[in-house]
Structures are given as structure tokens and as C-alpha cells.
Design a protein around this nucleic acid. Structure first.
Lengths: 272, 272
DNA sequence: CTGATTTATCTTGCATACCAGTTAATGTGT
DNA sequence: ACACATTAACTGGTATGCAAGATAAATCAG
């Protein structure tokens, strides 16, 4: 198959190398220079693609918590080698979406219960800051974008398109982050709320609640337009509070999907 | 060493395999089960070790932003193969501590300027929530721990041990997170503030400010003991605000260390 | 039939090899 | 001298193979 020529290079040639190189090495590590900024290559490596694909499968519960996943199996299924698969798995393990047990197996990460109330509180704190800042900075153009988005939400809510509505919900909060001039904060919120999202999908169908969400969004936008930071923040807090009372019940129904690392009867209190 | 039996397995045997296996395969993927929880192995893989080592070097500025780093060079230096090195580099690239340019080279990540004000605002929002919650929940035992830590801080501040003081500073904020019953939130804050820490080390020596920090910490603890959530939060905000006015100057001094992705003359405002 | 032991076959961790693409020293033509 | 094509030596992305540990089926001892 492979001729495998005698490849003794790779090793560093000694200074007295009898065969003087015709071409000199290229300048090695000549101090801090940074990458050539004029060419930013697109990162569409196999590993990146697999990461996004598996991540979506986990978040949307195509893969239930605790399901064994095998690097080999995925590699065969996708027709690639284990290397990019492993790259994706390791990234997912870092955000606790996958649990890797060395020499034994990997599993879709169970939801750490302690992450749920903390994520809710963190998200609320950050998004209250975002809505205050957005209220202070929003232009009339921003108002229009927000209202157009609200109309879109109402449309999709009518059609009972849960997945589509979930996407729009994220987009709405992202828009507020952009208006606040703090888009990275929304990215952090997204990382924080991953386990919350999985919990929600596991426990309630969330159908019928879409109208309520649109109403709350509408109220938030109204307060934003009125320029009242505190009231807008209060509405945002109302919009994001909750969940806490559902945790104990949700965990009790399907304990195999969770890592119960805190006392379910004594969940962290919320202080607004 | 090892007889290495004819290992033609690995491939899936066809159903009509003339040599029926004496041992059957072990049950494959029999539904969600989760890992064997009774044995939690320590994760001291080479990749993990390298990740922490390189990360520390970057954060503590042993490696300046923009410095080229080579997977091969590190692998040789550490006496391991490229695989675990690559694993570490990829993790670092995710938190923007390394910039990877495919087929060209990798570099210590330059500091994205836009991350600085956003990190400060996020941290402030989260830590204000933490101190309020901690104030509400703290027991007399917690008070003692806090005061003991303040004494420790004062000691180290006297000795001009900057690195040690930085560590204690982090520990103080971590303690507040624990008292609030929300330790994961502090972990998130740590991720958020990485670029801020690098900026600080790049621009000011921070010497002489240690006494001020200890005084501010002391004030915060006093308000916590008094049980006044709002005042404690206000002191925390004061403690964490700042930096903004230094950004433009710091970037101007060493522009090669930064990714200037926002308008330096129009940094995001702070809304408390 | 029950419980301990063996063993085939899994798993992930790491090493190695190869590839395509980038880069910069070099050679060459003008 | 200077512009330009050439090309050796690098880069990170991927494929593959082996090793050590874990696990459950198969086997054996009682």
C-alpha cells in the first residue's frame, strides 16, 4: 500500500551535517509578531463541524443524558478517523455536555442539578444589566428592530413552532445585548444557560407558554422605550425568574438524567 | 514483549463467520445508563497537565501576546507527542488565549480590547449579586473566615508579594461565592476575567495598590456583617469599577499586544 | 445452581505518519 | 539593483496503530 520511504528527516541535523542545506531554515520564532492579520482563514475543519453537530444533538435531546457515545462508532458513522471526533468530544467534555471516563467510555453528560439555580441567577443578573444598558443607549432604529422582532415572535407563536420559537427567543435576547453594545455578554449567557435549556426540554413541553413569553417580551420593550431602566430590569427579572420550583419535581421524575450534587430541598435562594 | 495474537478483529465479523466467537461481544450501547459513578478516576492526563502549564504561562505573561507557539516545539520540549499538546492548544484557543491559523501557525492570543469593558461589567454584575446573597446568608462562622482572610491579606500586602496577593485576592472573592452558596458563579467570573487579568499585568505593576484593595475588602466585609445588602453591593461595585480609563492608554503603549476590535474613543458605558 | 475467575473485546490516551497548504530564503531573468 | 518564479522547510489537520485499563460474557470450582 504505502512505500514509506526512509524518512530520517524530522530529526534535527547536527551542525557538522556533511550535506549542507541548499535552502536555509525559515526564520524561527523571531519574537512576538502575531498572525498575518490580512488573511483570516475560515475554520471549517471536520472537528469543528462534528462539535457543532454533536452539541446540537445533545442540547436538543436527540441524545439523552447518560447515553453512551463511542468515539469509534461516531468516526465510522461519519466516515472520518477518530482524531477529529475525539477533538469534538473533548470540547464537549469541557462544558460538561459529555462525561469521559478514561479507558472505559464516554457518556452524554447528565445535568448537574447545582448548575440550574446558579445559571438562572447568573443569567438574571447579566440580563438585567444588559436591559438597563440597552434602555440607556437604544435609538429609534433599535426600537423599530425590537418591535419588528416582537411581531415575528407573535407570528411563530401562533404556528406552535416550538423549535422555531425557541430560536427566536434567543435572538431577542441577543438583540438586546447588541443594543446594549455588549454582544459578548450574551455569548457568555448562552454558555451559562446550556444546562437550563436541557432541563426545560426534559421537563415541560413548553407549549402554550409561548404567548406568555411574547407578552413579557412586549412589556420589556415598552419599558425600554419609556426609558425606565429600573422597570425594564424588573420586567426582565420577572421574565427570567421561575424554574426553581420545578427543579425538585423534574429531577424526581427522571433522576437518571441528573447529577444530584446539592440538596434538592434546600436550593439556593434568589436575591434580587 | 507481547505475543500480539493475529488481531484481525476490529472489523465487524460477517454473520456467516466460519469461526464462531467463543466469547460474545459485550452488550453494546444498551440505552442511557451513565458512567459507573462509584469510581471516579483522577484526570491527570498529559494533555490536562500541559493545558494548565501553558495557560499559566500565558496568563502570567511568561508568553507575551502574539508570540508564535509551535505544537512540534512544545512536544519536543516536553518529551511527548503532538497529540496531547494539540489537545491543550485547542482548549486554549477556545478561550481565546491562543490564535490558531490553519496550515500556518499558532500564536499566543492577543487581547481582544472589546472583551475588557464587557468583562468588567459582567464581573461587576455577577459579584454584586454574590455579595448581596452572601450578606443574606452569612453565618457568624462565615464572618470569622472572612476576617481571618482579611488579616492574611494585610500580612501579604506588607510583604509586597504581588503574585501571592493576587492569589489571595481571587481567594477572597471565591470565599464570597461559597458563602453565597453559588460557587459555580465564581468559576464563571474567573473565565470572564482572564483577559482583564492579562491586561492588568501588561499595563500597571499594581504595586502600592494592595493596601487600597485590602481597605476596600474590609469595607465590604463590614457592610456584609451589618447585613446591608445594597451598601455591600455598592462597595463591591466601587471595588470592581475602574480599568475603563486605562484601556486606551494601555493599548496605545503596546498596540501589538491587542486586537483592536472596538472604537477606543467610545468604549461601552457603565450602567450600575 | 451459585460465586469466583478467566478472557475476549471493548474503551480512551498517546505516538507516529502523512498530507495539503503556507512561508520565506533562494535563484534567476531582466 | 530589482521583480518574480522556485522550492525547501515549516505549519496544523487528519488517519492509523498500539498500549493500558475496564468490563461483561464465558468458564470453572464448589
Amino acid at each position: 500500500m504505502k512505500p514509506t520511504p526512509p524518512k530520517l528527516s524530522q530529526v534535527q541535523v547536527s551542525p557538522e551535517d556533511p550535506r549542507p542545506r541548499k535552502r536555509r531554515n525559515r526564520a524561527p520564532n523571531s519574537g512576538p509578531t502575531g498572525p498575518a492579520h490580512w488573511l483570516i482563514r475560515s475554520n471549517v475543519s471536520i472537528g469543528e463541524r462534528l462539535y457543532k453537530k454533536i452539541r446540537t444533538s445533545i442540547i436538543e435531546l436527540d441524545l439523552l443524558p447518560g447515553t453512551p457515545i463511542s468515539e469509534n462508532a461516531i468516526a465510522q458513522l461519519e466516515g472520518v478517523s477518530r482524531t477529529p471526533v475525539r477533538e469534538a468530544i473533548l470540547r464537549l467534555a469541557e462544558e460538561r455536555l459529555v462525561e469521559v471516563v478514561p479507558q472505559s467510555g464516554s457518556y452524554v453528560g447528565r445535568i448537574p442539578v447545582s448548575a440550574l439555580p446558579e445559571a438562572m441567577l447568573s443569567r438574571r443578573a447579566l440580563e438585567m444589566m444588559l436591559i438597563k444598558t440597552a434602555t440607556a443607549r437604544a435609538t429609534r432604529d433599535d426600537w423599530q428592530q425590537l418591535e419588528a422582532h416582537l411581531a415575528l415572535q407573535a407570528d411563530v407563536a401562533c404556528m406552535d413552532d416550538i423549535a422555531g420559537f425557541h430560536h427566536l427567543d434567543d435572538e431577542f435576547h441577543e438583540l438586546i445585548g447588541r443594543i446594549a453594545g455588549l454582544p459578548r455578554v450574551w455569548e457568555h449567557v448562552q454558555e451559562i444557560k446550556v444546562q437550563m435549556d436541557r432541563f426545560r426540554r426534559l421537563t415541560f413541553a413548553q407549549a402554550g407558554r409561548m404567548d406568555l413569553v411574547v407578552r413579557e417580551h412586549t412589556t420589556i420593550v415598552e419599558e425600554l422605550k419609556a426609558g425606565s431602566q429600573e422597570r425594564a430590569a424588573k420586567e426582565m427579572a420577572t421574565h427570567l425568574t421561575g424554574l426553581r420550583s420545578y427543579i425538585a419535581k423534574g429531577v424526581a421524575q427522571n433522576p437518571q438524567y441528573f447529577i444530584i450534587d446539592i440538596d434538592l430541598d434546600n436550593l439556593p435562594e434568589s436575591v434580587v
